[in-house]
Nucleic acid binder design. Sequence first.
DNA 1: GAGTGGTCTAGACCACGTT
DNA 2: ACGTGGTCTAGACCACTCA
Lengths: 268, 268
Amino acid sequence: MNDATGTGRQMETARATEGPGGPGPVILSPFVRVARIPMHHQIREDLVLNLNSGRFQPGAELPGEAALCAHYGASRGTIRHALADLARDGLIDRQAGRGSFLRHPKIEGSVVGSYRQFRIEGPPLDAGGSVLSLTRRKADANVAEILGLGVDRAIYFLRRLRFAAGVPVTLQTSYLPVALCPDLQKHNLDERHLIDILLQEYGVAMARAEELIEPAIADEHDAKHLGIKIGAPVFQIERRTYLADGRIGEFRRAVMRGDVYRYRLDLR
Amino acid sequence: MNDATGTGRQMETARATEGPGGPGPVILSPFVRVARIPMHHQIREDLVLNLNSGRFQPGAELPGEAALCAHYGASRGTIRHALADLARDGLIDRQAGRGSFLRHPKIEGSVVGSYRQFRIEGPPLDAGGSVLSLTRRKADANVAEILGLGVDRAIYFLRRLRFAAGVPVTLQTSYLPVALCPDLQKHNLDERHLIDILLQEYGVAMARAEELIEPAIADEHDAKHLGIKIGAPVFQIERRTYLADGRIGEFRRAVMRGDVYRYRLDLR
DNA sequence: GAGTGGTCTAGACCACGTT
DNA sequence: ACGTGGTCTAGACCACTCA
């Protein structure tokens, strides 16, 4: 549970490849509005129906906003309201300067379309945590690739045990470029959020992050620190945190107690 | 891994209770706009900062849209854009005729505020699946409570092994009120989505669903059907699917292969 | 009736990607 | 240069809640 190598998915999702010439444009069926129901709802549902009809391939381009205004007889604000809903739900991709494009064929046998809400349930993490180790080392090939650095560039290797209400709940291993935060060891990692130290001490602002969540099993090391049994179910979470310019500021792998945290999903 | 009883979280999140008189109003700190960054982003982040400052209790009422327009010197459309983002991310509740109110205390030490996007990564499920058993029985106390039925009301107990591209990937146990779908056994559960059968054969439309996701370990039964080893990490997923009137139409517990699926989260 | 959020319009300017 | 989506404004009418 401790290597920074690939995780070895056994069945990768098939990436849709664009054939030569690419998928055709989306052509809408006629539309009649119904009274009493908000226009942008009707437009959204009509677009969902059209896009899910199977007549179009992923990647197909939607009509521009102006064309949709004409087709639906609505103002641009209303059209944009409907399109924003579709984009939020992952049905379409929108790109300024290019257009709007159909995304996935259909995600899963979910209730109707897509996830609406996602949150973790459990006690909030305390700031900081117990630093198990903080060392400077040279990046090996894996870490260098993940962080987008040259091999042998200096990185910090930070292991912390973190608590919620004083109870150990997650064990985190972080990799950070030394160039980003020289002398990191001088700061109080026991009591401050890493993200706050980066921002306040180094002026480094994290813009966004990606997490990959998998089920895993506590090994001896995990079990000892988290106070659980070897073999107990845990979440394994990989997080890549990005700077504003797209570089990765931190790569982290965490093991989180499965008996304390769970994820909750709302589907609509 | 197979009882329908409670899951026994060890540390429940504390529910904030409203004191007598209720929580006070939200009072905003002064705001200075920065050039080059969209106004509604800045307003959203400023509101996040204010709401997460700890100065306000859950339930606290935000200033009205007009007041926010004045405070931020922006038009109503821009203010509404920012507020819509906050509502979408679950930070506030908005109610027409009443106002906007602060929701949760604070979720987690995430990058700045909240989850933006999440999806499951892995191959799409095939429709239907191999029915391992479909029996009619009387609801025991646990299932009756979950489904909101009286004890001893008839339920269907359905176990299916489901596939993705022909490979077994998830084992599902469903509980449905017989009243909702009498003679369910007459329909082709091997090849159709349960949700489609309910809609097309019984006119029962599922409105929304909730899922709880935990890490778990494959037991002998899981391992045998899914073709994995006993003790292999899996996701355990509880799903409650709701009808439009709020009743629960299906309670399901599923075990999903951890080597095939993972969740991806985008944080902003 | 006053205040709230929900809907909708019409118009403007911008950054961006393509041609 | 042109079309795309992103941002923002100013104003209007509505349904709803609450005093």
